[in-house]
Design a protein around this nucleic acid. Sequence first.
DNA 1: TATAAAATCACCCATTTGGGTGAACGTTAA
DNA 2: TTAACGTTCACCCAAATGGGTGATTTTATA
Lengths: 205, 205
Amino acid sequence: MSAIRVLVVEDNPLIAADIEQCLTNINFHIVATAFTVNEAISELAAHTPDIVLLDINLGEERDGIDIAKIIAEKYQIPFIYITSYSDNATIERAKPTKPAGYIIKPFDERDLLAAIEIGLYNFSQRAIMSKSNITIEIVNKHISDPLTFREFEVLRAIYEGKTNQQMAKELFISINTVKTHIANLYQKLNVTSRTAAIALIRTWL
Amino acid sequence: MSAIRVLVVEDNPLIAADIEQCLTNINFHIVATAFTVNEAISELAAHTPDIVLLDINLGEERDGIDIAKIIAEKYQIPFIYITSYSDNATIERAKPTKPAGYIIKPFDERDLLAAIEIGLYNFSQRAIMSKSNITIEIVNKHISDPLTFREFEVLRAIYEGKTNQQMAKELFISINTVKTHIANLYQKLNVTSRTAAIALIRTWL
DNA sequence: TATAAAATCACCCATTTGGGTGAACGTTAA
DNA sequence: TTAACGTTCACCCAAATGGGTGATTTTATA
């Protein structure tokens, strides 16, 4: 496994050095340390790190939360806030940016490593989640009369936007058979259209 | 705002008492403290708390991760692990259960409060997310010819499984107009069916 | 105010989808 | 060896959807 590439944004050189020292001896590679918002922006563009550690208070007009917005907008890289005070207003402002984690100062090496590892994991999970992984188990967990395997295959194809013709071709069956499966699974899901079926599935995936 | 109802699962009475003391003086109400897996299961059923604090190591055969699986399966309540970061294998086992947060021992009151607040927030966000969180901004970010607001409303209705008739009724327009909007937005999305449109949106969710 | 963009509606036609019935065939388990 | 179930297919009909054209009204906005 290659080292995890970290960008640190922290205006206090002492803390920045501390973080660097914590991370460099293990599985992490600090690609850059930014002390200002502008530095952070250019370092982001230059290195596209795997994760960003963001001090919220940077002693200038714009703060870490502004950087977070840029990251979410342009890079979709997970970021972790480093925040010193439990200033409630700041926390409330930080929450909606969907950080991968928080570290409350003062923190030790263990806190830091845990936050990064967990943050990276959750972020990757969220990305995987958002793709599509319906299973027949998940579907049948929510209905009384379970789908057969073939019905499930047709349902999945519907979920993926296929037409009946495409399904017939891909599953090597006639379009009539596809229609039979659809009629049966509609009854089991208690819906009367493809889109309703999709919307239903979405609520329980 | 009513107090947040917390279930604590922790076999060490000292730590349990510590947590209780931290939480009771603020906005939290501890509905129960469980010292064993079986206790946790019955307290869960009895109180259906808002959030569960789970010590992973409970000194018995089954641990907090087993409880987490039960929570995810039957209750969909967010839970936060309390763990000492020492054991890497345990952490790896804990990650896939999608906890709302972690607290690393030893922790202080501030860590605890932050974890709960953030955990609850993220969890509720995830629940909202999975319902339907399309915005016209998100959609238009991915296409060259942007949707108009009305087209977007129709697209969202499609995403939610509505039929043309339902849309016409809900948007106070004729079914012909609905069809016009659909035809236009299909061109902009470069699709030829509702399900294809939904599948497309899902990729940029 | 002139003009463009957005929103509204109508009509036609072809295709797709949904609902219902019936039936053949193979596998599995009582 | 029945019976139940899953899978396959056919046919019919009604409803919904998709594709195209054209037109009017409303709403920005230059």
